[in-house]
Amino acid sequence: MTGSVTRSMTRSMTRSMTERAEVDERPAQSLPASPGAALGARLARGELSAAAAALNLLETDTAEARREAVQLLDAVSVEALGHEPAAHIIGVTGPPGVGKSTLLCALLARWRAAERSVAIIAVDPSSRRSGGALLGDRARILHDPADGGVFIRSMAAGEQLGGVAPATRAAVAALSACFDVVVVETVGVGQSETDVAELADTVAVVVQPGSGDVLQFLKAGIMEIPDVLVVTKADLGALALRAQADLHAALRALGGAGRPVISVCAIPPTQGIEQLAEALEQHRRTLALPARRAAARRAHALADFAAEHGQRGLRALGGRRAGATWLERQPQQASLTQLRRALEERLPHP
Protein backbone atom coordinates (compact mmCIF):
# COMPACT_ATOMS: atom_id res chain seq x y z
CA MET A 1 0.00 0.00 0.00
CA THR A 2 2.91 2.28 0.66
CA GLY A 3 3.87 1.69 -2.92
CA SER A 4 0.64 3.06 -4.34
CA VAL A 5 0.85 6.15 -2.20
CA THR A 6 4.41 6.72 -3.26
CA ARG A 7 3.50 6.28 -6.89
CA SER A 8 0.65 8.75 -6.62
CA MET A 9 3.07 11.16 -4.96
CA THR A 10 5.61 10.73 -7.70
CA ARG A 11 2.93 11.44 -10.27
CA SER A 12 1.71 14.48 -8.44
CA MET A 13 5.25 15.83 -8.23
CA THR A 14 5.02 16.71 -11.90
CA ARG A 15 1.63 18.33 -11.56
CA SER A 16 1.03 21.92 -10.77
CA MET A 17 -0.18 22.87 -7.34
CA THR A 18 -3.75 23.45 -8.40
CA GLU A 19 -4.00 19.94 -9.79
CA ARG A 20 -2.52 18.67 -6.57
CA ALA A 21 -5.32 20.36 -4.63
CA GLU A 22 -7.84 18.33 -6.62
CA VAL A 23 -6.07 15.11 -5.82
CA ASP A 24 -6.27 15.89 -2.13
CA GLU A 25 -9.97 16.60 -2.23
CA ARG A 26 -10.63 12.90 -2.36
CA PRO A 27 -11.82 11.69 1.00
CA ALA A 28 -8.85 10.46 3.01
CA GLN A 29 -10.51 7.10 3.70
CA SER A 30 -10.38 6.12 0.06
CA LEU A 31 -6.64 5.55 0.36
CA PRO A 32 -5.31 3.04 2.85
CA ALA A 33 -3.27 5.23 5.20
CA SER A 34 0.49 4.82 5.41
CA PRO A 35 1.95 4.81 8.93
CA GLY A 36 3.10 8.39 8.44
CA ALA A 37 -0.27 9.53 7.15
CA ALA A 38 -2.01 7.69 9.99
CA LEU A 39 0.15 9.44 12.59
CA GLY A 40 -0.45 12.77 10.87
CA ALA A 41 -4.19 12.15 10.89
CA ARG A 42 -4.09 11.38 14.61
CA LEU A 43 -2.26 14.64 15.27
CA ALA A 44 -4.73 16.51 13.07
CA ARG A 45 -7.54 15.05 15.18
CA GLY A 46 -5.85 16.44 18.29
CA GLU A 47 -4.53 13.13 19.62
CA LEU A 48 -1.66 14.30 21.79
CA SER A 49 -0.61 10.72 22.51
CA ALA A 50 0.58 10.40 18.89
CA ALA A 51 3.30 12.98 19.48
CA ALA A 52 6.10 10.63 20.60
CA ALA A 53 5.67 8.20 17.69
CA ALA A 54 5.41 11.11 15.26
CA LEU A 55 8.71 12.53 16.46
CA ASN A 56 10.38 9.12 16.33
CA LEU A 57 9.40 8.97 12.66
CA LEU A 58 10.42 12.53 11.87
CA GLU A 59 13.84 11.93 13.45
CA THR A 60 14.46 8.72 11.52
CA ASP A 61 16.72 9.10 8.54
CA THR A 62 16.03 6.17 6.25
CA ALA A 63 14.55 6.40 2.77
CA GLU A 64 11.33 4.77 3.88
CA ALA A 65 10.99 6.98 6.95
CA ARG A 66 11.60 10.09 4.88
CA ARG A 67 8.74 9.08 2.58
CA GLU A 68 6.49 8.48 5.57
CA ALA A 69 7.51 11.82 7.06
CA VAL A 70 6.24 13.57 3.95
CA GLN A 71 2.92 11.79 4.40
CA LEU A 72 2.80 12.82 8.03
CA LEU A 73 3.51 16.47 7.36
CA ASP A 74 1.06 16.57 4.47
CA ALA A 75 -1.64 15.38 6.85
CA VAL A 76 -1.06 18.42 9.09
CA SER A 77 -0.61 20.96 6.28
CA VAL A 78 -2.77 24.06 6.01
CA GLU A 79 -4.56 22.37 3.17
CA ALA A 80 -5.34 19.24 5.13
CA LEU A 81 -6.33 21.11 8.28
CA GLY A 82 -8.20 23.86 6.46
CA HIS A 83 -6.37 26.52 8.51
CA GLU A 84 -2.95 27.38 9.87
CA PRO A 85 -2.03 25.03 12.72
CA ALA A 86 -3.58 26.67 15.76
CA ALA A 87 -0.69 26.44 18.21
CA HIS A 88 1.19 29.40 19.50
CA ILE A 89 4.78 28.51 18.56
CA ILE A 90 7.20 30.16 20.95
CA GLY A 91 10.97 30.14 20.68
CA VAL A 92 12.80 30.54 23.98
CA THR A 93 16.50 31.10 23.76
CA GLY A 94 19.38 32.53 25.73
CA PRO A 95 22.82 31.78 27.12
CA PRO A 96 23.32 28.68 29.28
CA GLY A 97 22.45 29.00 32.95
CA VAL A 98 20.15 32.02 32.75
CA GLY A 99 17.19 30.05 34.06
CA LYS A 100 15.29 29.12 30.88
CA SER A 101 14.09 25.82 32.28
CA THR A 102 12.95 27.35 35.54
CA LEU A 103 11.13 29.99 33.56
CA LEU A 104 9.45 27.37 31.37
CA CYS A 105 8.45 25.55 34.49
CA ALA A 106 6.56 28.61 35.75
CA LEU A 107 5.01 29.30 32.33
CA LEU A 108 3.99 25.68 31.98
CA ALA A 109 2.15 25.77 35.29
CA ARG A 110 0.28 28.86 34.16
CA TRP A 111 -0.63 27.43 30.76
CA ARG A 112 -1.83 24.17 32.29
CA ALA A 113 -3.92 26.08 34.80
CA ALA A 114 -5.61 27.66 31.78
CA GLU A 115 -6.06 24.14 30.33
CA ARG A 116 -3.81 24.76 27.38
CA SER A 117 -1.85 21.74 26.18
CA VAL A 118 1.88 22.32 25.88
CA ALA A 119 4.68 20.68 23.92
CA ILE A 120 8.25 21.62 24.69
CA ILE A 121 11.18 20.75 22.46
CA ALA A 122 14.48 21.25 24.26
CA VAL A 123 17.40 21.41 21.83
CA ASP A 124 20.80 20.49 23.27
CA PRO A 125 24.20 20.77 21.66
CA SER A 126 25.86 17.58 20.43
CA SER A 127 29.46 16.61 20.90
CA ARG A 128 31.34 17.24 17.69
CA ARG A 129 33.69 14.39 18.40
CA SER A 130 31.34 11.54 19.21
CA GLY A 131 28.11 12.75 17.64
CA GLY A 132 26.34 11.93 20.91
CA ALA A 133 24.55 14.41 23.14
CA LEU A 134 23.60 14.73 26.77
CA LEU A 135 20.01 15.79 27.04
CA GLY A 136 19.19 16.85 30.55
CA ASP A 137 16.69 19.63 30.53
CA ARG A 138 13.38 17.88 30.80
CA ALA A 139 13.68 17.06 34.50
CA ARG A 140 14.05 20.70 35.35
CA ILE A 141 10.68 21.40 33.85
CA LEU A 142 8.58 20.09 36.71
CA HIS A 143 5.28 18.58 35.69
CA ASP A 144 2.96 15.76 36.58
CA PRO A 145 4.01 12.73 34.52
CA ALA A 146 0.37 11.61 34.45
CA ASP A 147 -0.67 14.87 32.77
CA GLY A 148 -1.27 13.96 29.12
CA GLY A 149 -1.49 17.65 28.22
CA VAL A 150 2.26 18.07 28.56
CA PHE A 151 4.79 16.68 26.12
CA ILE A 152 8.52 17.26 26.50
CA ARG A 153 11.12 16.04 24.05
CA SER A 154 14.85 16.63 24.03
CA MET A 155 16.56 16.84 20.69
CA ALA A 156 20.24 16.90 19.92
CA ALA A 157 21.27 19.78 17.71
CA GLY A 158 23.33 17.37 15.64
CA GLU A 159 25.58 19.09 13.14
CA GLN A 160 23.96 22.46 13.71
CA LEU A 161 26.19 24.57 15.94
CA GLY A 162 23.98 26.43 18.35
CA GLY A 163 21.03 26.22 16.03
CA VAL A 164 18.08 23.86 15.78
CA ALA A 165 18.27 20.17 15.04
CA PRO A 166 17.42 19.04 11.50
CA ALA A 167 14.22 17.38 12.69
CA THR A 168 13.20 20.26 14.94
CA ARG A 169 11.40 22.18 12.19
CA ALA A 170 9.45 19.09 11.21
CA ALA A 171 8.64 18.38 14.85
CA VAL A 172 7.28 21.88 15.30
CA ALA A 173 5.18 21.56 12.17
CA ALA A 174 3.72 18.29 13.46
CA LEU A 175 3.14 19.29 17.07
CA SER A 176 1.62 22.66 16.21
CA ALA A 177 -1.33 20.81 14.70
CA CYS A 178 -2.50 19.48 18.03
CA PHE A 179 -0.93 21.33 20.97
CA ASP A 180 -2.12 24.77 22.07
CA VAL A 181 1.41 25.91 22.80
CA VAL A 182 4.63 24.62 21.24
CA VAL A 183 7.87 25.83 22.80
CA VAL A 184 11.28 25.39 21.21
CA GLU A 185 14.03 25.96 23.74
CA THR A 186 17.57 26.47 22.44
CA VAL A 187 20.83 27.41 24.11
CA GLY A 188 23.13 30.19 23.04
CA VAL A 189 23.29 33.69 21.67
CA GLY A 190 23.75 34.45 18.01
CA GLN A 191 22.80 31.64 15.65
CA SER A 192 20.27 30.06 17.97
CA GLU A 193 17.73 32.87 18.00
CA THR A 194 18.08 33.41 14.26
CA ASP A 195 17.14 29.79 13.68
CA VAL A 196 14.38 29.94 16.22
CA ALA A 197 13.05 33.13 14.70
CA GLU A 198 12.60 31.21 11.46
CA LEU A 199 10.26 28.69 12.99
CA ALA A 200 8.49 30.46 15.85
CA ASP A 201 5.56 32.86 15.95
CA THR A 202 7.10 34.62 18.92
CA VAL A 203 10.72 34.68 20.01
CA ALA A 204 11.63 35.34 23.61
CA VAL A 205 15.30 35.88 24.47
CA VAL A 206 16.13 35.24 28.10
CA VAL A 207 18.99 37.00 29.88
CA GLN A 208 20.08 37.30 33.46
CA PRO A 209 21.09 40.49 35.21
CA GLY A 210 24.74 41.34 35.04
CA SER A 211 25.59 39.43 31.89
CA GLY A 212 26.29 41.88 29.13
CA ASP A 213 26.64 39.55 26.16
CA VAL A 214 23.08 39.80 24.90
CA LEU A 215 23.23 43.56 25.22
CA GLN A 216 26.46 43.64 23.23
CA PHE A 217 25.08 41.29 20.58
CA LEU A 218 21.99 43.46 20.22
CA LYS A 219 23.99 46.66 19.89
CA ALA A 220 26.39 45.10 17.43
CA GLY A 221 23.50 43.90 15.31
CA ILE A 222 24.69 40.29 15.55
CA MET A 223 21.35 39.47 17.05
CA GLU A 224 17.92 40.24 15.67
CA ILE A 225 15.68 42.20 17.99
CA PRO A 226 13.54 39.57 19.73
CA ASP A 227 9.78 39.89 20.09
CA VAL A 228 10.02 39.71 23.86
CA LEU A 229 13.04 40.11 26.14
CA VAL A 230 13.00 38.42 29.51
CA VAL A 231 15.26 39.32 32.42
CA THR A 232 15.37 36.52 34.98
CA LYS A 233 16.20 36.60 38.68
CA ALA A 234 14.09 39.65 39.43
CA ASP A 235 14.66 38.75 43.10
CA LEU A 236 18.11 40.27 42.70
CA GLY A 237 16.32 43.63 42.84
CA ALA A 238 18.45 46.59 41.78
CA LEU A 239 20.65 44.47 39.52
CA ALA A 240 17.62 43.16 37.63
CA LEU A 241 16.10 46.63 37.30
CA ARG A 242 19.39 47.90 35.94
CA ALA A 243 19.52 45.12 33.34
CA GLN A 244 15.94 45.88 32.33
CA ALA A 245 16.75 49.59 31.96
CA ASP A 246 19.88 48.84 29.89
CA LEU A 247 17.92 46.62 27.53
CA HIS A 248 15.16 49.22 27.18
CA ALA A 249 17.76 51.83 26.28
CA ALA A 250 19.41 49.55 23.73
CA LEU A 251 16.05 48.72 22.15
CA ARG A 252 15.13 52.40 21.87
CA ALA A 253 18.42 53.13 20.16
CA LEU A 254 17.78 50.30 17.71
CA GLY A 255 14.24 51.42 16.92
CA GLY A 256 12.56 48.70 18.96
CA ALA A 257 11.14 50.99 21.63
CA GLY A 258 7.83 49.16 21.83
CA ARG A 259 9.34 45.71 22.49
CA PRO A 260 8.46 44.40 25.90
CA VAL A 261 11.23 43.74 28.41
CA ILE A 262 9.80 41.66 31.22
CA SER A 263 11.53 41.10 34.51
CA VAL A 264 10.63 37.77 36.09
CA CYS A 265 11.42 35.61 39.07
CA ALA A 266 10.52 32.01 38.36
CA ILE A 267 11.12 30.60 41.84
CA PRO A 268 8.67 31.26 44.66
CA PRO A 269 7.56 33.87 45.34
CA THR A 270 7.31 34.24 41.55
CA GLN A 271 6.97 37.60 39.86
CA GLY A 272 6.30 38.71 36.33
CA ILE A 273 5.14 35.33 34.97
CA GLU A 274 1.61 36.54 34.35
CA GLN A 275 2.96 39.63 32.65
CA LEU A 276 5.28 37.58 30.48
CA ALA A 277 2.52 35.18 29.43
CA GLU A 278 0.39 38.18 28.54
CA ALA A 279 3.21 39.79 26.53
CA LEU A 280 3.70 36.55 24.58
CA GLU A 281 -0.01 36.34 23.83
CA GLN A 282 -0.17 40.01 22.96
CA HIS A 283 2.55 39.49 20.38
CA ARG A 284 0.73 36.53 18.89
CA ARG A 285 -2.56 38.48 18.69
CA THR A 286 -1.01 41.33 16.73
CA LEU A 287 1.03 39.07 14.48
CA ALA A 288 0.36 38.63 10.76
CA LEU A 289 0.24 34.88 11.32
CA PRO A 290 -0.15 33.56 7.75
CA ALA A 291 2.87 35.54 6.59
CA ARG A 292 5.03 34.41 9.53
CA ARG A 293 4.02 30.79 9.08
CA ALA A 294 4.65 30.99 5.34
CA ALA A 295 8.12 32.34 6.07
CA ALA A 296 8.71 29.46 8.47
CA ARG A 297 7.66 26.88 5.86
CA ARG A 298 9.93 28.48 3.28
CA ALA A 299 12.89 28.43 5.65
CA HIS A 300 12.05 24.83 6.50
CA ALA A 301 11.86 23.82 2.83
CA LEU A 302 15.16 25.51 2.08
CA ALA A 303 16.85 23.89 5.07
CA ASP A 304 15.55 20.46 4.06
CA PHE A 305 16.64 21.05 0.50
CA ALA A 306 20.11 22.10 1.60
CA ALA A 307 20.38 19.06 3.86
CA GLU A 308 19.41 16.72 1.06
CA HIS A 309 21.15 18.27 -1.94
CA GLY A 310 24.04 20.07 -0.26
CA GLN A 311 26.10 22.89 -1.74
CA ARG A 312 25.72 21.51 -5.24
CA GLY A 313 21.93 21.72 -4.92
CA LEU A 314 22.11 25.27 -3.59
CA ARG A 315 24.34 26.26 -6.49
CA ALA A 316 21.76 24.90 -8.90
CA LEU A 317 19.26 27.31 -7.33
CA GLY A 318 21.68 30.15 -7.94
CA GLY A 319 22.56 30.26 -4.26
CA ARG A 320 20.64 30.18 -1.00
CA ARG A 321 19.31 33.69 -1.39
CA ALA A 322 18.01 33.03 -4.90
CA GLY A 323 16.32 29.89 -3.56
CA ALA A 324 14.66 31.93 -0.85
CA THR A 325 13.49 34.50 -3.40
CA TRP A 326 12.08 31.75 -5.58
CA LEU A 327 10.13 30.39 -2.60
CA GLU A 328 8.73 33.81 -1.84
CA ARG A 329 7.06 33.73 -5.22
CA GLN A 330 5.09 30.61 -4.25
CA PRO A 331 1.60 30.98 -2.81
CA GLN A 332 1.53 31.88 0.88
CA GLN A 333 -0.41 28.77 1.91
CA ALA A 334 1.88 26.40 -0.04
CA SER A 335 2.74 23.38 2.02
CA LEU A 336 6.21 22.22 2.92
CA THR A 337 6.00 19.40 0.40
CA GLN A 338 4.92 21.78 -2.31
CA LEU A 339 7.71 24.21 -1.52
CA ARG A 340 10.32 21.47 -1.52
CA ARG A 341 9.02 20.30 -4.84
CA ALA A 342 9.19 23.84 -6.16
CA LEU A 343 12.86 23.91 -5.28
CA GLU A 344 13.57 20.45 -6.62
CA GLU A 345 11.99 21.35 -9.91
CA ARG A 346 14.85 23.76 -10.38
CA LEU A 347 17.43 21.03 -10.14
CA PRO A 348 18.84 19.99 -13.50
CA HIS A 349 17.22 16.78 -14.68
CA PRO A 350 19.60 13.86 -14.54
Binding site: S130, G131, G132, A133, L134, L135, G136, R138, S154, A156
Partner: peptide, 12 residues
Protein backbone atom coordinates in the same frame (compact mmCIF):
# COMPACT_ATOMS: atom_id res chain seq x y z
CA UNK B 1 27.61 6.85 26.59
CA UNK B 2 27.59 10.37 25.17
CA UNK B 3 31.30 10.02 24.42
CA UNK B 4 30.51 6.79 22.61
CA UNK B 5 27.95 8.54 20.44
CA UNK B 6 24.66 7.82 22.20
CA UNK B 7 22.07 10.49 22.67
CA UNK B 8 21.62 10.33 26.42
CA UNK B 9 18.68 11.57 28.42
CA UNK B 10 19.84 11.96 32.03
CA UNK B 11 17.66 13.85 34.43
CA UNK B 12 19.44 13.46 37.72
Amino acid sequence: ARDAGFDVVYEG
